[in-house]
Design a protein around this nucleic acid. Structure first.
Lengths: 249, 249
DNA sequence: CTGCTTTTTGCGTTTTTGTGCGGGAATTTC
DNA sequence: GAAATTCCCGCACAAAAACGCAAAAAGCAG
């Protein structure tokens, strides 16, 4: 069998089944594993397949596009994300809501971190999925199309069964009087459940949202442990929250 | 034997078998390998064949096995998607697996369709989510990073609670003897559960996968109701499946 | 037929290419 | 952590290609 022929066969198999194992291929075509590996390497160099340990993956299947551009005040969110990531250590169970700040945090996770992330937010899950070492648990239920998050009683029930080490909430509005507030009833139910199921609750919020309110109440300041913003901890804007017993970073 | 004559013979052989070996040719025509090599070189220079180490390939060979566009046999998958979409009517509960064919189907859903789609496949969910009128239910559990689908006992349990009107399975391999087979144990468990929980089971498969097998068995032909390929229903390749009691489209 | 050029072919020799093998490093997996 | 795969690297070896050269064949004019 000619080399080109063999490579064509391999590529064909990859495209058909989205993945191939070198061990299987070498017994099918009756050549050494080295040869298969070299073929896969060449195909990978040409961009035809993605080589992985033990075989190869089809290229088309693996690239899921996500609309990453045009995030509002992304730099601030990056700052927040950096601070938030510092709270996560190996082996933790981490519960997260949705929202662009959470996504930014997902992107900032150090590659060597080994932890379990639980969420019902599709965009967040997409980010977690491409992380090499974290386990991803998806909360299932009906999907709310505008918030791109799973909502409903099943999702809430599933969250209540958990006990996470830490919970990160993307915040829509926070003020001293009303605590955390939001504008989507179903999302609020979710967040309430997440708060209940976590040992520690951390709110991520850009400074702009501080001292603003939304119609529906999520929880009071007494229920959150920490507030992370892009501001330095001694910023006067944060003073009232510190006084209310919230840690600030 | 004249040179022109010989080259014509070689070209004929190439077009007939899609490949020739120089070693074989030289013993057939009784000339030295150098002569064959020079002939192949000339034919290659004229663009008649593609010269490779050890022989030559026909040009059609390359067209067949190295698709120029991104997604493999996308046209076929579109055809299949069109047929599959015809089976869905308003108000239905539709259970789907993952795979590129399923995604193509998701993209082909008519905008005015109102139905409920249930899946654990992240890429599929992403497509459903952008549809204006369908409800999307996400099966939650641990995410398998390879297959981008939720897997595990919770997911299976959740599926078993359902009773869907119709179930679409992206197929990895199907043949008359082994039925539907696949190469990922966890995905197979999912598919089995989906089959059990659906009134009607439809397999989507490009013709190339027909009469091929993979290591792990999903189900026998008796458990599926319909097989959709890009072929016309009277194609001889489908005959054995019709005989086995499977409807074909 | 003869002498000449041009084309084609075959034959060593040298290079290049393709493949398998062994051992040690890296990785996955339990 | 330890065991089992898988990967990577260098090497050996065989098959094929490239190259130069010379012999054979073919074409051609006188």
């Amino acid at each position: 069998m000619l080399k080109k022929e063999r490579q064509a066969y391999i590529l064909h198999q990859v495209n058909l089944h989205n993945k191939v194992l070198s061990s299987l291929l070498c017994s099918e075509i009756n050549v050494s594993e080295d040869t298969i590996r070299r073929d896969l390497q060449e195909l990978a160099d040409e961009g035809k397949v993605i080589k992985v340990h033990g075989g190869a993956l089809s290229h088309s299947f693996n690239q899921v596009y996500f609309p990453t551009n045009g995030v509002y005040s992304q730099n601030h969110k990056k700052t927040i994300a950096e601070k938030a990531v510092g709270l996560i250590s190996n082996g933790m169970f981490v519960l997260t809501s949705g929202g662009t700040t959470i996504i930014e945090m997902a992107r900032s996770l150090p590659p060597q971190l080994k932890a379990t992330f639980i969420s019902g937010s599709i965009p967040a899950i997409l980010e977690y999925m491409y992380h090499p070492n974290i386990e991803v648990i998806l909360i299932g239920d009906k999907i709310s199309k505008n918030s791109k998050i799973t909502v409903g009683s099943k999702a809430i029930a599933k969250i209540k069964q958990l006990k996470a080490d830490i919970c990160f909430l993307g915040t829509n509005a926070i003020d001293v009087e009303h605590g955390i507030t939001d504008n989507d009833w179903e999302v609020v139910q979710l967040k309430r459940a997440m708060i209940e199921s976590s040992k520690m609750v951390v709110c991520l919020s850009i400074a702009e949202k501080i001292n603003s309110a939304q119609p529906i109440r999520v929880c009071g300041l007494d229920e959150i442990d920490m507030l992370i913003t892009e501001l330095p901890a001694n910023d006067p804007l944060l003073k009232p929250y510190i006084n209310a017993g919230v840690r600030v970073a």
